[in-house]
Simulated assay, not measured.
Amino acid sequence: MEALMQQYRTYLVKDRKLSSNTLESYQRDLQQFFAYLGEQGVPHPSDASQTTLIGYCLSMEHKGRAPSTIARNVASLRCFYHYLLQQQMIRQNPAEQLESPRSQKRLPSILSFDEVEKLLHQPSGKGFKAYRDKAMLELLYATGIRVSELISLHLKDVDLSLGFVRCCQERSRERIIPLGSKAIESVRRYLEKYRPHSDQTLLFLNVQGKPLTRQGFWKIVKSYAVKAGIDKPITPHTLRHSFATHLLQNGADLQAVQEMMGHSDISTTQVYAQMIHSRIKDVYNKAHPRA
Score class of each variant (00 low, 15 high):
A3M: 09
A3L: 14
Q7W: 05
T10M: 11
V13N: 02
T22L: 06
T22Q: 08
S25G: 09
Y26I: 05
L37F: 07
E39G: 06
V42F: 04
H44P: 00
T51V: 09
L53M: 08
G55S: 15
G64W: 10
R65Y: 14
T69L: 03
A71K: 01
R72Q: 03
Q86G: 10
Q88I: 02
N93H: 04
P94N: 01
P94V: 09
P94H: 04
R102H: 04
S103C: 13
S103E: 15
K105Y: 08
S109T: 15
S109V: 15
I110C: 10
F113T: 12
F113H: 15
F113S: 02
D114L: 05
K118P: 03
Q122S: 02
G127C: 07
R132A: 12
E149Q: 03
L150G: 00
I151A: 00
H154E: 14
L155Q: 12
D157T: 10
S161R: 08
L162I: 13
G163F: 05
E170T: 09
R171N: 14
R171K: 15
I177M: 08
P178Q: 04
A183F: 10
Y190T: 11
K193G: 10
K193T: 11
Y194I: 01
Y194H: 15
L203A: 03
N206G: 01
N206H: 07
P211H: 07
T213A: 07
T213E: 05
Q215G: 03
G216A: 09
W218L: 15
V221Y: 08
K227I: 06
D231W: 09
T238A: 07
R240E: 06
H246E: 11
Q249M: 05
Q249W: 09
L254K: 05
I266S: 06
T268S: 15
Q270L: 01
R279Y: 12
A287K: 00
H288T: 07
